[in-house]
Amino acid sequence: MVRRQLGQLEAEILAALAAADGHLSPAQIRSRLDGEPAYTTVNTVLFRLYDKRLVTRERQGRHFTYRLAVDESRLVADRMHDHLRYASDPSGVLSRFVQTLSSEEERVLRSILGDDAPGA
């Protein structure tokens, strides 16, 4: 069994919903996660995400199906910003993050920042 922090499981569930074309049941979400956490755990996290208004739900018979209610890129960017805000050395965190980017990710970041020149 894979043990993960609750925040990590929330992020994995949100990513599974972001990749879906429509609503997913807790069982469908569970099958898309590494290690397949307990159904009750996935359901509990989904209820919490619903309370936070990060997902919407729709009744399908006796059960609910879920869909992402927010823009995934905004959600991830907000989490990254929160981590930077609480870091004792935000510049060091940013530096370490940039050092781990792939060539393609670096190219995209340079493009966003308006610096398309390689090595600049």
Rank of each mutant, 00 (worst) to 15 (best):
R62Y: 11
Q5G: 06
R30I: 00
G35I: 03
S25Y: 04
M1N: 12
E36M: 12
D116A: 05
R85F: 07
S73A: 11
S25Q: 03
M1P: 13
E58C: 03
H23C: 00
R3C: 08
A77E: 00
K52N: 01
L17D: 03
D116G: 00
D21R: 13
A15W: 08
T100Q: 15
Y50D: 14
S95V: 06
R57T: 13
G119Q: 05
E58V: 04
V93L: 14
L14G: 00
P37F: 05
L75A: 08
D21Y: 03
P26L: 02
P37D: 03
E104N: 02
G35K: 08
D71R: 14
S31L: 09
R74K: 14
P26A: 15
D34S: 09
R30Y: 04
L33K: 09
D21T: 10
V93F: 10
I112N: 10
H83A: 15
I13N: 10
V45R: 13
H83Q: 15
D71S: 12
G114L: 01
F97G: 04
R32L: 13
I112T: 10
H63C: 11
G92T: 13
R79F: 06
R48I: 07
N43T: 03
T44M: 11
R79N: 03
L49I: 03
R79G: 02
G22F: 06
L9H: 05
L14C: 09
A18T: 00
R59C: 02
A77M: 07
Q5I: 01
R79S: 04
Q99M: 10
H81M: 15
E12F: 02
V108C: 07
E10Q: 15
